[in-house]
Nucleic acid binder design. Structure first.
Lengths: 144, 144
DNA sequence: ATATAACTTCAAGTGTACTTTAAGTCAACA
DNA sequence: TGTTGACTTAAAGTACACTTGAAGTTATAT
C-alpha cells in the first residue's frame, strides 16, 4: 500500500500557481511568511497545502496588511492556539481599518463617476456647457 | 464698490485645510499638480477655489491614479476643452481598473470576515474545534 | 556530452510617494 | 528690537515591497 503522495512544486511552478514570481516567494520566505520544504540538494519544493496558505496570505495582504503585520500574524500562528486571541484582535483591527478605507474609497468612486458623467453630458450637450463641476455636484447633492 | 476679496491661505493653513502637509503641497507643485499664487515677496498663497481643486485631485488619487497620471490629466486640462475626450478616456480607464480592484478587495474582505468568524466560533466552541479553515470555507461555499 | 533552463545565495538596485535636512529669509508679537 | 515661528529652495533621505544582477550549481532535453 503506497503512501498517498502529494504533488511537489518547484519554486517556478509554485510561483505560477499562486500568481507570484520566484524572487517574490524567496522574499516572502526571508520575511518569514513561508517555509517551503527542501530536497537533499538544497532546492525548495512546495506542496498543495502551501498554495492555500499563500493564497490566504494574499487575501490578508489585499485587505491592507503589511508584510510586517503578516509576519506578526505568522509568528503568533507558529506559537499555537494559545495566540488565537492576539490573532483575532489583529484581524479585527485590520477589518476596522479596512472598513474606514472602504468607505472613503466609495466616496472617491462617486466623485470619479460624477466627473465622468459631467464630461459625458458636457460632450453630449445634455448639461449646460457652462455649469461648473462644483455646481453639478451641488445639483446632485454630492457635496465636497 | 469694493472688489469681492477671497480669503488667502498660507501654505501651512492651506495644508491644514486640505489635510496634507506643506512639504507635500510643494511636492505636488513640483509635479505640476498645483499652481499656487505668489505674494511679491515670493511666498505662496492659496485661495478657496484651490481647496476644491486639491480635494478633487485627492479623490482621483484615491481611486488609484498615480501622481504621473494626475499630471497627465492636469496637463490636458490646461490645454482646454479640446482635450476633454482624452481626459474622459483616462478617467474611464481609471474607473475600469478601479472596479476590477474593487471586486478583488471584496473577496479579500470576505475571506478576512470568514477567518474572524472561524476564530470566534472556535473560541466560543460553536464550531467543531478541529474543523479546518478550508473545510469551514467549503461549508460556507466560499471557495478559494 | 553538452547546451540551456531553472535553480541557489547574497547584495544591490528600483519605483512611488513622500519626508527630512540644511541654510537662509521674512513676519508677527512682546 | 529681538526672538520665535513660518516661510523659501534644493538636495538628500526614507519606507515599502519588491526586482535585478552576479556568480555559481543542478536538472533536463537533444
Amino acid at each position: 500500500m503506497p503512501t498517498a503522495t502529494t504533488k511537489q512544486y518547484t519554486i517556478g511552478d509554485f510561483a505560477r500557481a499562486v500568481g507570484l514570481t520566484a524572487p517574490t516567494l524567496r522574499y516572502y520566505e526571508d520575511e518569514g511568511l513561508i517555509e517551503p520544504h527542501r530536497h537533499r540538494n538544497g532546492r525548495r519544493y512546495y506542496e498543495e497545502a502551501d498554495i492555500n496558505w499563500v493564497k490566504f496570505l494574499l487575501h490578508l495582504k489585499g485587505t491592507g496588511m503589511s508584510i510586517s503585520e503578516l509576519k506578526q500574524y505568522v509568528t503568533w500562528r507558529a506559537q499555537g492556539d494559545i495566540t488565537i486571541p492576539q490573532r483575532l484582535a489583529l484581524l479585527q483591527q485590520v477589518k476596522q481599518d479596512f472598513l474606514v478605507q472602504y468607505a472613503e474609497v466609495q466616496r472617491h468612486l462617486q466623485i470619479l463617476n460624477d466627473k465622468i458623467n459631467w464630461y459625458e453630458e458636457k460632450e453630449a450637450g445634455v448639461t449646460d456647457a457652462d455649469e461648473s463641476f462644483a455646481a453639478y455636484l451641488d445639483r446632485l447633492g454630492h457635496q465636497e
